[in-house]
Design a protein around this nucleic acid. Structure first.
Length: 583
RNA sequence: GCGCCCGUAGCUCAGCUGGAUAGAGCACCGGACUUCUAAUCCGGAUGUCGCAGGUUCGAAUCCUGCCGGGCGCGCCA
């Protein structure tokens, strides 16, 4: 149960009953009525702005409404106290029994605690990574990969049926370059001395095994042929080899997408034609001449008639070209077809995760989706800002030219999957992030991964310990749910329970904002509250979890910490991080 | 020139889609260990929320205009 949602329902019911009794007018708009946790916990457990929201509609003073409402709310079994504060807030203190019952919810649900029906039955498509298939993934791809994957988990947690997708940019000139680079490696594998890799081809050794594989499969059958005769096959082979690399890289981060969609297939299977035909039918395509961008005209600018999409009718600044001067389709045309395909597969909710340098592309893509779906489908584009690597306090410099880009694999091999994933989620996606190797490897509270993991490990440690000291004490979650939770009375224990109870709300808020980093912040706070209680036990031995001479108390406290472990694991699961048993 | 993102404590950043006296961590000072893992915890102070208006019971949050920073701006993907 989400306590805030529950209390909100109660408040709304009470407003209804006041209306029935003629105290308030009927038919009030309650959509802005909020029930939230007050910033200052001394104000109570939950607060509502009901009286403030209704004052204008009801034509009454806020404090008068609050007085009437507070009186009724005080009659609820869950409510221990109702007070009016400030301009007309109603602060509610909920009963200890109500909170303890929430701990029971946690223990019965386990990892599934916090699952929500908010988006039950809705399909959503999320596309992320979509790196060009020209080599292994590097540091620049990691953030989008982790963010997209965690967001997918988060959306699934609130009930969406999620499809995780990767768009393979296997159509452009860069793939020809890749194919030629592979051809060179193929000749090399057949014993030819190729010397230095020529300018303009990909020099990376990751193509060496692919060249060897080509040679092993086909022998010398491609030697001595004109490029036109081998190019297509080398493109296919190279893209397939690179995508195997990419999938391996993603797997090292625990990422597995269901759909890998080929851009090239849109060219060859008529996907572009049918998408553009659909737009044509709506009269959204025409031939025209674009104005040069003001203030920054490219040197080689010349006015040219182009096939344009009327993006400006759907919120974009200008209409956008679909065809290059040589008659081939622009990247945008193919991307329209790709999103058309998603719409045709039934998606009304789509998320694209892009690097921040693609921000200028958002309006036209959203415009295209609106046009294609007659405004029935929504595309949400989330941008990921740059990651800066720090080592020894210094920025790790990288350049494509020098070929010293840190690969995803190197990063994962050095610090581990869980650390990479957690660290990438410690900032809002659209804020720049520093990834500090020194912090990532540190075993202290400065390292948030460590700090949260340590809390989980400590709990597991206590559970192992109690198995030795009180072997016959039932400690399975289902038994703990039946423990006498009334034995939990210390303020630090109650605080911890309240924090657990706010987990379902934290999940929903994070999902609405599509910001999985909020989960990381929540977990840090939960871990902090747990560590505090632990240390309180050091100072006051009667507060320790295991009290050998009081089995009921011990069981109640095991219930509490098992609840904490469940919620930690539940949050880590969204982030794609394994909870550890010991450290 | 235009569009998007950002500007919160000395530093790094949160801020629950408009709530009460704006919060954490780091750094600095002082405390807690024959511990269920001190790899932790407790206490101590700091703000023109970039600036100026507006919207309303109420603004860091929404709107407008400036200032400052990042990214992007036809035939790259």
């Amino acid at each position: 149960m989400n306590p805030f949602t529950y209390i909100r329902e109660q408040v709304i019911a009470m407003v209804g009953s006041l209306a029935d009794d003629g105290v308030l007018p009927a038919g009030l708009d309650l959509s802005n009525l909020a029930v939230e946790a007050p910033r200052d916990s001394s104000h109570g457990d939950v607060a509502t702005n009901a009286a403030l929201v209704l004052t204008k509609q009801a034509g009454m003073k806020p404090r008068d409404i609050a007085a009437a409402l507070a009186e009724r709310l005080a009659g609820l079994g869950e409510v221990a106290a109702a007070e009016i504060a400030g301009p007309g807030f109603i602060n509610l203190r909920l009963s200890a029994e109500f909170w303890r019952a929430r701990l029971g919810d946690v223990l019965r649900s386990g990892i599934a605690y916090g699952d929500s029906q908010m988006a039950a039955g809705e399909k959503i498509n999320i596309e992320y990574v979509s790196a060009n298939p020209t080599g292994p993934l590097h540091i620049g791809h990691v953030r989008g990969a982790v963010y997209g994957d965690a967001l997918a988990n988060l959306l699934a947690k609130v009930g969406y049926t999620v499809c995780k997708e990767y768009y393979i940019n296997d159509a452009g000139a860069q793939v020809d370059v890749l194919a030629r680079s592979l051809h060179l490696r193929y000749r090399e594998a057949l014993g030819e001395a190729i010397g230095d890799i020529p300018e303009g081809l990909y020099p990376g050794d990751y193509l060496v095994p692919a060249g060897q594989a080509m040679a092993d499969r086909d022998g010398d059958k491609w030697l001595g042929l004109a490029e036109a005769d081998w190019l297509a096959e080398f493109r296919r082979f190279a893209v397939s080899a690179m995508m195997d690399l990419v999938r391996g890289d993603l797997a090292s981060l625990g990422i597995e997408q269901q759909v890998f969609f080929s851009e090239d297939s849109l060219h060859s299977d008529g996907g572009i034609d049918s998408a553009l035909a659909a737009l044509q039918k709506k009269d959204l395509i025409y031939t025209g001449i674009l104005e040069p961008p003001k203030g920054k005209t490219p040197d080689d600018w010349e006015p040219r008639p182009q096939t344009l999409f009327k993006a400006s009718q759907f919120g974009d600044d200008v209409d956008r070209p679909l065809q290059k001067s040589d008659g081939s389709w622009t990247y945008f045309a193919a991307d329209i077809a790709y999103h058309h395909n998603k719409v045709e597969r039934g998606y009304r909710q789509m998320v694209d995760v892009w690097g921040a340098d693609h921000g200028g592309y958002i309006k036209r893509m959203k415009a295209a989706v609106r046009a294609l779906s007659d405004d029935q489908a929504n595309l949400d584009v989330r941008l990921c800002q740059m990651v800066r690597l720090l080592r020894g306090g210094q920025v790790v410099r990288m350049s494509k030219r020098a070929g010293n880009f840190v690969t995803l694999r190197e990063l994962v091999d050095e610090v581990g999957r869980d650390v990479v994933r957690f660290m990438m989620l410690t900032r809002k996606n659209d804020a720049p992030l520093d990834f500090d190797f020194d912090v990532a490897m540190e075993q202290s509270k400065d390292n948030p991964v460590f700090y949260v993991q340590y809390a989980h490990a400590r709990i597991r440690s206590v559970l192992r310990r109690v198995a030795e000291e009180l072997p016959e004490l039932p400690r399975e979650p289902e038994n703990l749910a039946g423990a006498d939770l009334n034995r939990l009375t210390d303020s630090a224990e109650m605080e911890l329970i309240k924090q657990l109870a706010s987990w379902p709300r934290a999940v929903e808020i994070a999902a609405l904002a599509r910001e999985p980093h909020r989960i990381a912040f929540y977990l840090n706070e939960l871990a902090s509250a747990f560590h505090a209680l632990w240390n309180k036990g050091n100072a006051e031995p009667q507060l320790r979890f295991i009290i050998v001479e009081d089995r009921d108390l011990t069981q109640a406290r095991l219930a509490l910490i098992q609840g904490v472990a469940f919620v930690l694991a539940s949050g880590l699961a969204i982030m794609g991080v394994e909870p550890v048993e010991a450290m």
